[in-house]
């Protein structure tokens, strides 16, 4: 095995570790809503903030604003709340939810590629 092979193996190893750390090791952005307050979620290359904490039994408005033309993000699906909404580009789409159960509820784009989470406390 030549030196360049060892170098490529080393770089490959670093690349794999970096990929893991970069995509899977990140801390999701977080926002908390108190009663009656709305939360803006920017849809651009994912959801920002990704994790939203909302109170149980109170109606919370989540305003999705899609700034990304990627068609993958054109729909947002909150399956536990039976909501699927089309998000027109650069327009605010408000979703109102009144969760009755505490817990963590995932949401995603229509093609299930980008994910976010709603924590009901």
């Amino acid at each position: 095995m030549e030196l360049k092979d060892l170098l490529v193996i080393g770089l490959g190893f670093v690349g794999i570790i970096f990929t893991y750390w970069f995509f899977l090791g990140k801390k999701p952005s977080f926002a908390e809503a108190t009663g009656g307050q709305g939360i803006d979620v920017v849809v651009e290359g994912g959801y920002s903030p990704e994790v939203i904490s909302i109170p149980r039994g109170k109606t919370t408005k989540i305003n999705f604003i899609r700034k990304d033309s990627n068609s993958c993000l054109e729909e947002v699906v909150l399956p536990d709340f039976k909501i699927k909404k089309y998000l027109p580009l650069n327009q605010k789409v408000t979703i109102e939810i009144t969760p009755q159960k505490s817990g963590e509820f995932g949401y995603s784009c229509g093609m299930n590629m980008y994910h976010g989470k709603i924590i009901v406390r």
Binding site: F22, F23, K26, E44, G45, G46, S48, K67, D68, Y114
Partner: peptide, 8 residues
């Protein structure tokens, strides 16, 4: 590009 910015 925006996806990478959000590490997705």
């Amino acid at each position: 590009i925006p996806a990478l910015r959000h590490r997705t």
